[in-house]
Design a protein around this nucleic acid. Structure first.
Lengths: 256, 256
DNA sequence: CGGTTGATTGATACACATCAAACCCCGTGG
DNA sequence: CCACGGGGTTTGATGTGTATCAATCAACCG
């Protein structure tokens, strides 16, 4: 189970028009994992609506949650009350993982839209892990993936200028959506500019300006009316825009 | 499943006033975990020296590594070659966790000093997890703790001004050192100003200035000679300095 | 020693934050 | 139907925290 997750060349995909960067097996992988959990564990399904809190920082850790549908943000909070969005989660992602170590959740997990989460008791999950190694593998992959994602976020936060971070955010969102088998060229953000800015470490005005610049360069397009929908004619153009934006400010950086 | 309302009045109360207290059992917990792994698994011990790479981004994921002694940094790298320190690791921490999901490591783990790491084959670890639930618990706690730490890092990066981030870094280092049973009032940084700055998302000059200001306020002291050693008369003063520095720039931040 | 690497400090530049005004969309109620 | 209000967005003018550039200094070492 350790190998060949990123490159799964074996399976031919039914979904035809996905961009090349996405492994075709991704939607199946997620669906398979959800099926596995359904079959292995007692699950409590919860429908949530925008603004609902799935689990709250400080609460006693009992359950892990798996996103079946919808979009969720992870919000960390300092003692002084500074709020920070530290993660975004989609179908197949797990919520509450940072509660395992300390016996209480470290972040709020908040729904950004109507969706469904599955609650699993952690003690029951551990039983299932021992009975079915595939469950163990699924859990480990979820945690490991979140770690890797966090590391990439830190890389962006620390090394990219604002425009590039916003472009990277859109690419990340598009990748996630298309990995779940949905079309990525017309994405519907469930976040305000303020939330995006918070997640990316900048103000809402800077987000807005970055999006305007991207629209002006025709990297993205806004439909008539709603500025929350974003058309992405070509995902590759986002990457190019990122590189242009970051090359402008950072000629070279060496750690030593 | 609590619902809605971003501002539940209950959330303000939970005990936040603990000044980074150290559970007295921390050194025992770590020693116990190392003992457990020793007894449960075939382990390959490796002595490393400053600059040695324990595992490298892109390498095929086979082993996890546990720090027995020494200090390690996790370095993430973008396609364009921007390097970013995304984590610091001490005795009892695990290295290579972000490789589980993708079949290859996501970061370099680099020794910052002479030390010893234990290599464990991941497949063997999975066997041991099934045989001994305590091993499973140790692994999950290590991953969960790293997730929580990453979230805290993002909170700092996005919400704190440079001075407060540097103070927070020192407090973090001191906490880790003292959790391992070493004295925390005289810490010996194994990092250059450039490495600290990279980790904290700022330049080496800014780190230097922040340290100078702290020394001027007598929050820290430099011994004669070596500017890499730092005396911390009172760890609480670091927290106070952090709050002063962050209050200066951020009167209030609301997500909505 | 001189040479090298790291740290400090100052002067200046710039990316982004802040402040402010206007606009758009949409639901509500007269 | 339009008036109204309010949250979200855009855009401009201005301020500032930190980066950048540059010079000096300190410690180490063959």
């Amino acid at each position: 189970m350790t190998s060949a997750a990123t490159f799964a060349p074996t399976s031919a995909s039914p979904s035809a028009s996905v961009p090349a960067s996405v492994p075709p097996s991704a939607p199946q992988r997620i669906a398979g994992m959800l099926k596995l959990l359904e079959d292995s564990l007692p699950i409590h399904r919860h429908v949530v609506h925008a603004g609902d809190t799935v689990c709250q920082a400080g609460q006693r850790f009992v359950h892990l949650y798996i996103v079946n549908s919808g979009f969720f943000k992870l919000v960390n909070m300092s003692e002084e009350g500074r709020e920070q969005v530290v993660g975004l989660h989609f179908r197949g992602d797990w919520l509450g993982l940072d509660g395992i170590a300390g016996g209480q959740y470290g972040c709020d997990a908040v729904a950004m839209d109507t969706g469904e989460v599955w609650a699993i008791r952690y003690d029951a999950l551990l039983q299932a892990c021992i009975a079915k190694p595939a469950v163990l593998a699924a859990l480990h992959q979820a945690m490991s993936r979140e770690l890797a994602r966090d590391h990439d976020s830190m890389l962006s936060l620390c090394t990219l200028p604002a425009d590039a971070r916003v472009a990277g955010f859109l690419r990340y969102w598009a990748d996630n959506v298309s990995q779940r088998g949905l079309r990525a060229d017309k994405i519907m953000l469930r976040m305000t500019r303020a939330e995006i800015g918070n997640y990316l470490g900048m103000t809402l005005e800077t987000v807005s300006r970055a999006l305007s610049r991207m629209a002006r360069s025709d990297v993205i397009r806004f439909p008539e009316k709603c500025r929350r929908d974003i058309h992405i004619p070509e995902v590759g153009a986002l990457t190019a825009f990122m590189q242009r934006a970051s090359a402008a400010a950072a000629p070279a950086s060496t750690l030593h």
